[in-house]
Design a protein around this nucleic acid. Sequence first.
DNA 1: AAGATTGACAACCGCTCTGCA
DNA 2: ATGCAGAGCGGTTGTCAATCT
Length: 358
Amino acid sequence: MGRHSCCYKQKLRKGLWSPEEDEKLLAHITKYGHGCWSSIPKQSGLQRCGKSCRLRWINYLRPDLKRGTFSQEEEDLIIELHAVLGNRWSQIAAQLPGRTDNEIKNLWNSCLKKKLKQRGIDPVTHKPLSEVENDEDGNKIQPTSDEQNLIGSTIIDGSNTQPSDSVGHFQMQQLNYEVSPSSSNPTHWFTQTSKYFDIDTEFSSNSMMSTLLPPLTSAFLSDSPSMAATYATRHWVADSASAGSANNNNTSASAELQSNDNSFYDNSGFSWGLMENHAEETKWSEYLDNPLLMAAALQNQTPQSLYNIEIKSEPYFLNSSPSSNTVWGQSQNQEQPLQNPDIFGKDIQGLTAAFGHV
DNA sequence: AAGATTGACAACCGCTCTGCA
DNA sequence: ATGCAGAGCGGTTGTCAATCT
């Protein structure tokens, strides 16, 4: 912890790199590779710490770096990714070949935040500023009932992706979160239209994550990007398996979930982990600004009512069902029970707490 | 013309995570 | 199980050129 050990050594230069230093580092890594960063300064004759060498290489000297200004497409992608991933710059950078996390972070802080504000979008929540603005009495302005009826619709555009034989693809284009306001026992559901998406070798670095399921996932995503992946994994796995193109390596996300005590498995053996890491009720308060949760909170029910959450292959259902047993993740298309429902019986309490007045 | 301000970019710092002995 | 070192991440600060006053 704390300062890197090599930095304790004396006579180490700090600050901007000179062309001579760049040349030394570039020549050394080109010839020998970087190997152990801490040994680079000694081997290359640089008066720098290994950490500084690493940073210089990653952010400036790497030959695969794309220099120059960001294109509009890149900026748009960064904004989309930030909406889902937040300040996870390295994960965002993984979606933009040739760009570094540092570069993207700087762009965001110096430019994109302002642009979003100019468009009337809050750069933190990615919601219209009007939604987080207060009225004269200091109360939050809430959407109208019409707005509640269809809230959080998102288009997932995968039209530019290329087929990937090695891993497969999944099917999902559009997911709408909707609330039926007329019922005394409101139903919340997600509808989707179908479209194929390609899966890269690693789920966490897939472009799908940039566009997948906001605002649904952003409601649950703050601490667990894998949750979003799980929503899609279920479809991807099913689809790619049926297409005969599933890769046994799976993805990092699904593999991780299968080894996670807080995840559970459906009867096809695939992992779901939607609510892992969210047992603490306090965490849910963070999501109350999300359209999904906001919409739910606008429903006028008792705080004690529980949600009976059911997930269908299409559409996804979120049914409120006071006092019923909570079953999380049960597919109505499958008759066999989940192998491990108890975990989610626990977690759903957190969800219920988050929904507040639902 | 000179100082102040701003913006973009580069680099550092403190911390966490992970692998290994 | 524990401590250590290396790697990596995100927040913050530093630098410098352009622009403003």
